[in-house]
């Protein structure tokens, strides 16, 4: 029953999203508004500015290198969070064992 209700609601959401998405500019046309002057600038000036043929590498490590620094910080934070969550019990178990031995 609950699943049926979710299905009806999500079908409604799907139809809503599809009707709005059909008004977007067509897939793969050159006149797409996302293919704007920023992309043209990157494609035309990358060789001159960075002399790296791979435009994506130039964007993520030269034009927007600060963004990539934040990205590495995200990785660092995630690993710090995972280790801080998972290593607590180990230390507690060790302490308990030590206490038991002492007791």
């Amino acid at each position: 029953m609950k699943k049926l209700m979710f299905m009806v609601v999500l079908t409604g959401l799907f139809l809503l999203l599809v009707t709005s998405i059909l008004k977007m500019p067509a897939l793969g046309s050159l006149n797409n508004p996302s293919y704007n002057e920023v992309s043209h600038y990157y494609l035309e000036n990358t060789i001159e500015d960075t002399s790296a043929p791979n435009v994506i590498a130039a964007v993520i490590t030269d034009y927007r290198a600060f963004d990539t620094l934040g990205e590495t910080t995200v990785l660092f934070t995630s690993i710090a969070a995972v280790i801080s969550v998972l290593q607590i019990s180990h230390k507690n178990h060790n302490k308990k064992k030590v206490e038991k031995h002492h007791g």
């Binding site: 060789i47 960075t50 002399s51 790296a52 043929p53 590498a57 130039a58 490590t61 030269d62 290198a65 990539t68 590495t72």
Partner: peptide, 20 residues
Amino acid sequence: MGEAGNLLSAGIIPLLTIGI
């Protein structure tokens, strides 16, 4: 900067890529 297309070129991009 070097010449585009060579392995040793593009300034800091290879250094940063190695770090990443």
